[in-house]
Design a protein around this nucleic acid. Structure first.
Lengths: 122, 122
DNA sequence: CGGCATCCTCTTTGATACTG
DNA sequence: CAGTATCAAAGAGGATGCCG
């Protein structure tokens, strides 16, 4: 049974499926992958080069997850040698606005956050 | 030195400190804690009751992280028995808008995502 | 080239017990 | 009541090697 969500007026409604979705879309590598694919379709190896810190395994996992959620699209371009292209979908593009809003928040408030951190380490 | 961020026009800029900040603010329990504290100041045990799935340890960790980043404030109200109150800060309130935007996205697009998932499981 | 399988490590989390 | 300490369990993530 899903946990009851006892909502008062104005509360943030964060039902489990929403949270799960956010977790899948905002995980460790997703944002960077999305960043790349928003600019241009890319091949697997191009993504690896663009995001040097990611391993093949994690990149595969990230791309699969994004593909499963309809945010990116995977196309086999040729075989021998295999070439695969990833591109962002229409749905994926709609994700960009809210993500940008969040990134703007970090940009605008990072100084305040850092001040708070300095205060905290006393 | 922070890793170079190779930016093309229109790319999402997600520098490491921003990502780190997002991770701290959007982690597993933060949203629910923020949800509660946006409504009203709460004591530790009230938060536990409001979020039954969180353990004391994790709640403490979450609150400390949010406090460190200036998003919530911790006040010792009384001793014997100890009473501690947590409340959202002005900075914390500014976080709500962009988070809401993201939650709206999940609400609006969850059907599309679920359709994509159904397509994917074939 | 893209990516799966295996192994292995490191971090995260939970359960439980204890304290000011 | 609001934590901390400790230990055990689980999971994410990396390294490597193989295959179509």
């Amino acid at each position: 049974m899903p946990e009851t969500t006892h909502l008062h007026p104005g509360a943030l409604d964060i039902a489990p499926p929403h949270r799960e979705l956010l977790a899948q879309v905002l995980d460790r590598w997703s944002l960077q992958v999305l960043e790349e694919l928003c600019e241009r379709p890319s091949r697997f190896s191009e993504l690896r080069r663009a995001i040097p810190a990611v391993t093949g395994k994690s990149l595969t996992a990230t791309l699969r997850r994004l593909e499963r959620n309809g945010v990116v699209e995977r196309t086999v371009v040729s075989s021998r040698p295999v070439a695969v292209e990833y591109r962002i979908t229409a749905l994926g593009k709609t994700l960009r606005e809210p993500v940008d809003a969040l990134l703007r928040w970090t940009t605008e408030h990072l100084p305040e956050v850092e001040a708070a951190r300095a205060r905290f380490e006393e």
